[in-house]
Design a protein around this nucleic acid. Structure first.
Length: 467
RNA sequence: GCACCUGUAGCUCAACUGGAUAGAGCGCCAGACUACGAAUCUGGAGGUUCGGGGUUCGACUCCCUGCAGGUGCACCA
């Protein structure tokens, strides 16, 4: 699984949201289906921007700001370096020289570069922790620096790559566009680009991880790149007598505002993910405090963290990933409708039932004698039957979501299941005196809880026992 | 110019790759807490699935064509 993959020296922003959230859900679905999933964060840690950052780092570093938030300082330094290079050709030359030094292994520049990488990964992990994301590997572009030469050699030997306008490129004569639109695997100046490293990465994943398949969770705007990468890999591996892994572009649309334009701040900047999550939590906290004022503040804060982040994840996952995703706070944190809060509320109510009817602690009701199946009578009421019928469709939903790598099929199912449960809850009281009826209803509650918690966990959401 | 994505109720979205009467939420209207959490539930109104052809017993789904919006297309990723 190749997902998230942000660039170092920059904070994660709203443009990184979908790959991380969808990728994590897909990874969990595939794991659940029995696949051995390797999560590889292919970060962009190598590129021309480092010349400007290093140039600015040497001259304009604000040590206090760096101590406070290194990544913000690196972002600022990039802007300083970029602006200076634009204004003064001499600076541009110096920045390019810093880049050449870095690429040729200069110790000082490598140390600065490593510093940038470490600070970036630390900041990324803070975001990932909120989402519950953990990667098995973080092998960025720099990892493949010494592996691209083999790619050039093999592509050339296989007769796939040719030199065009000074660059090493691959054409696909049978393709309507790629017959003339080149896949540039090495730039005219001899440097690698992301096609070079992506090809080296496929090779590494095939040889080192023995990957049968690689799923790339990447913006649909890069579908040309993916298609060229996949086509080239297929031919290249075939020519070398290697079996190519199945390659899949798990594409998704843009995050937009109400007007359908890419989501930005008022000043035109990308919205930082940490700020977006902070606002989600704040909105959730306001809501929790309004609805459950009796809970202690610390618990309301903890609930808000789960509801806030979960709302952001769920809003993304509830929709077919192919289309653009209109970001709207009101709908996302909303009380009703197909939202995380609705699902989490159903979960919390079931926990509450077990607390009340069994006096059970939240985790051990399953072994309670009151849940003994042999005591239960057959389901009877329309609401019981409707809920039961929905429960048995869980595997279908998992199957569809997994086969198509589209988590929204699972989201939709969970929403419908929660809806059936809510209908059942309103129609049929669980805590009745008749033990046969009570038991069968408790069983329905237990099954529903299992499906909801399992399903939400597969989407990457945490659940609550109280909210 | 070429290619890809999108177009379904006033709005935001579904419809499990061709199956029965196209479903939800928001909004609107009318109801339900002296029952386990009302962040809930029950009912109602609301549709020529962008237009036009075609394939099929059957089309939102597949093919052709037109329209509208978005995106990508030589060295940033």
């Amino acid at each position: 699984m190749d997902y998230s993959s942000p660039n170092t020296a920059k904070q994660m922003h709203v443009g990184h949201l979908r790959s991380a959230v969808i990728g994590e859900a897909v990874a969990r679905l595939l794991t659940f289906s029995g696949a051995r999933v390797i999560r590889d964060n292919h970060i962009g840690d190598w590129g021309t921007q480092f010349g400007k950052i290093i140039w600015a780092y040497r001259r304009h570093l604000d040590a206090a700001a760096f101590a406070r938030d290194p990544l913000e300082e690196f972002e600022r330094l990039y802007k300083v370096g970029h602006a200076a290079a634009e204004a003064d050709p001499a600076v541009l030359k110096e920045a390019q020289h810093e880049l050449v030094k870095l690429q040729s292994g200069d110790a000082d520049n490598l140390a600065i570069w490593k510093n940038i990488g470490d600070a970036s990964l630390g900041a990324f992990q803070q975001i990932y922790d909120r989402f519950g994301i953990r990667f098995d590997h973080t092998l960025g572009e720099s990892f493949y620096n010494d592996q691209v030469a083999r790619v050039y050699a093999e592509l050339t030997a296989a007769g796939l790559a040719t030199v065009s306008q000074g660059a090493l490129v691959v054409f696909h004569p049978e393709h309507p566009r790629f017959a003339t639109q080149p896949f540039i695997v090495r730039k005219t100046d001899g440097a690698a680009n992301y096609a070079s490293t992506d090809l080296a990465t496929v090779l590494y994943r095939a040889e080192h991880f023995h990957a049968d398949a690689v799923a790339y969770v990447i913006d649909s705007r890069q579908s040309d790149h993916c298609e060229q990468l996949f086509l080239t890999t297929q031919k290249w591996f075939t020519a070398m007598g290697r079996r190519a892994p199945r390659l899949e572009h798990v594409s998704f649309g843009t995050v937009t505002d109400a007007a359908g334009k890419p989501l930005k701040t008022k000043s035109g900047e990308n919205i930082k993910l940490k700020e977006l999550l902070a606002e989600a939590e704040e909105r959730a906290y306001t809501l929790v405090s309004e609805k459950s004022a009796e809970l202690p503040e610390a618990e309301r804060r903890a609930i808000a963290a789960v509801v806030g982040v979960g709302s952001v994840q769920y809003a993304d996952l509830a929709q077919n990933r192919s289309s653009d995703y209109g970001f709207a706070w009101d709908k996302m944190i909303s009380l009703d409708g197909n939202t995380a809060a609705y699902l989490l509320y159903a979960v919390a109510r079931i926990h509450s039932i077990f607390r009340k009817t069994l006096g059970a602690s939240d985790s051990n009701f399953a072994g309670d004698p009151a849940c003994d199946e042999s005591l239960a009578s057959a389901l009877e009421t329309p609401a019981e039957l409707a809920l039961a019928r929905k429960l048995v469709k869980f595997p279908d939903a998992i199957q569809t979501a997994t086969a198509q790598l589209r988590p929204h099929f699972l989201s939709l199912y969970l929403y419908e299941l929660a809806g059936e449960f809510s209908g059942f809850y309103a129609a049929d009281k669980v805590a009745v005196d008749d033990p046969a009826i009570r038991t069968r209803r408790l069983m329905l509650c237990a099954r529903t809880l299992l499906m909801l918690e399992t399903g939400l966990a597969l989407l990457g959401l945490r659940t609550l026992q109280r909210m």
